[in-house]
Design a protein around this nucleic acid. Structure first.
Length: 301
DNA sequence: TTAGATAGCGCG
DNA sequence: AAAGCGCGCTATCTAA
């Protein structure tokens, strides 16, 4: 099943959709995602395997033009930084200011141990909590993905919110806003309406509530990457690097992929990284990691 | 033969 | 009960 999926979803469509010049062009939908993200289709280049067994070989098929490299620029923990910022949670913000390992910190908090005593397994649970709980994950789902008993899972979730109280407070504020006005918004004003937020059916209502607390976070991430696209592509044009020497190829939610002539790779990459890190102020640092190589598998750290 | 819905799975 | 958010694509099934 795994092999068949790779062949029918990735290998064959990618070959068929490649243009005569040997380049593959996706279509970005600017209004496809309710949170403000772009989506990608025909083919979808935002879901090319990254971790699986076939990922390296699939990504080796994406190769820069002769004399160019592919360079990817990845915001580290973009959405968690947004969350720390919008919720004003000092502990989480502090962790990002000091460039700490956020999942490790969360594990240390919920397990009540010092940072140096956090095991790999504990860190894994911290990571699940960071990504899951803040989007409304319940004890049931957490116990399923962590292997903990349901009661234990519930305790960890409660501990999480008592360790990061501002996050809980912020979520309640967002829900109140959604119920009062029918919409929520990112700090830049991007709105998403929730017509079901007062639904009589608790299940329908809960679904709307989870999406509502997620939107200002995911949406702000989308706002930031869009600003980064504007600023970086503007830089390439101003410096007359576009289109002959450098171009922006893809946007993958918190990641931008460029194709850059080898002769100017180092200095151009440094400038792109600088632009991305300074494009928006969250009152805590945005950090960008960069990796490059001839093919896409080499351009990921 | 075509259109729509669902399950499963890939990504952030 | 799959109650963690946001997507797109393939295979599969049903209905027209």
């Amino acid at each position: 099943r795994e092999n068949f999926k790779v062949k029918s979803t990735y290998i064959e469509p990618i070959l068929n959709l490649t243009d005569k010049d040997g380049r593959l062009r996706t279509t970005f939908n600017q209004t496809g995602a309710a949170t403000g993200r772009l989506s990608s289709s025909s083919p979808n280049l935002q879901n090319i395997p990254q971790e699986s067994k076939w990922a390296p070989r699939l990504r080796q098929a994406f190769i820069a033009s002769d004399g160019f490299s592919l360079a990817s620029f990845d915001y580290s923990q973009l959405e968690l930084r947004v969350l720390a910022s919008v919720s004003n949670d000092e502990k989480m913000a502090e962790a990002f200011c000091q460039n700490q390992d956020i999942h490790k910190l969360t594990a240390a908090q919920v397990f009540n141990v010092p940072l140096e005593r956090v095991t790999k397994e504990m860190r894994r649970l911290g990571k699940t909590l960071n990504f899951g709980v803040v989007y409304g994950m319940g004890a049931d789902a957490f116990s399923r993905s962590s292997g903990l008993k349901k009661e234990e899972a519930r305790r960890f979730i409660n501990k999480y919110f008592s360790d990061f109280p501002k996050i809980k407070f912020w979520q309640e504020k967002i829900l109140e806003q959604a119920r009062t006005f029918g919409y929520v918004a990112t700090r830049n004003g991007r709105r998403r309406w929730f017509f079901n937020i007062q639904d009589f059916n608790p299940r329908v209502r809960a679904e709307a509530e989870r999406a509502a607390v997620n939107m200002p976070v995911q949406g702000a991430g989308a706002d930031i990457i869009k600003l980064a696209m504007i600023q970086t592509s503007g830089f390439l044009k101003r410096e007359k690097l576009f289109p002959a020497k450098a171009r922006l190829l893809l946007s993958i939610h918190d990641d931008l992929l460029f194709e850059i002539a080898d002769g100017i790779l180092k200095e151009t990459a440094a400038e792109i990284k600088k632009i991305m890190e300074s494009v928006y102020s969250l009152d805590l640092p945005l950090t960008v990691s960069c990796a490059y190589g001839r093919s896409w598998d080499k351009s990921h750290a």
